[in-house]
Amino acid sequence: MLEGKIALVTGASRGIGRAVALELARQGANVIVNYAGSEAKANEVVETIRSLGREAFAVQADVASAADVERMVKAALDSFGRLDILVNNAGITRDNLLMRMKEEEWDAVINTNLKGVFLCTKAVARPMMKQRYGRIVNIASVVGVIGNPGQANYVAAKAGVIGLTKTAARELASRHITVNAVAPGFITTDMTEALSAEQKETMRNQIPLARFGEPDDVARVVAFLASDAAGYMTGQTLHVDGGMVMP
């Protein structure tokens, strides 16, 4: 479905980003694998993609840094000459109760999870406008829609991503660039492994499909939005959460 497309996936060394990078490659895309710190894991993803017969390389970049993002997008364009798909996935958590949250915790999460999406979108908009083609998929979260105690920073960032998705969709639509979001629910990754057994049980009880999601559950929906099959969708947020939130 994505034969020959060039995709950039941020935060692609682990978790949902890794699954997205591999799924896009399985569907035919060549992939630029961005990572912040996990070089060895990013290289593993690259090797796996190459074993599928696709091209891939890893680029270290902090998405919260405009200079890093520009360097990353330039590297992608220098190698492949175009950029069809951007998946804004890179994200971190610094959970704390609102009353105890430090300014640094707030800033770190907003910078990576929200500003990072802005910077990457801005950087790829230029080549995509010239191409008159682009698919941008942002990884939001159901908590950005319903809130979550202990995650004021993360929830604010994810809700921000949903708003940014709608605005970018409106601004870029005339150039045939679509911008959509996916809002995962409880997905089994390093990020959610940090939760206690009790928290997990509470979450599971809220999921009609009665199981936690796997990164591949999210990756397949991202791949759909990144494909031409979703060409008439823009500004939307698709929930991939086992029915947890039905807005």
Binding site: R126, M129, K130, E171, S174, R175
Partner: peptide, 9 residues
């Protein structure tokens, strides 16, 4: 406004 951004590009 978007046309102007493109023209500048």
């Amino acid at each position: 406004s978007l046309d102007i951004v493109e023209l500048v590009m």
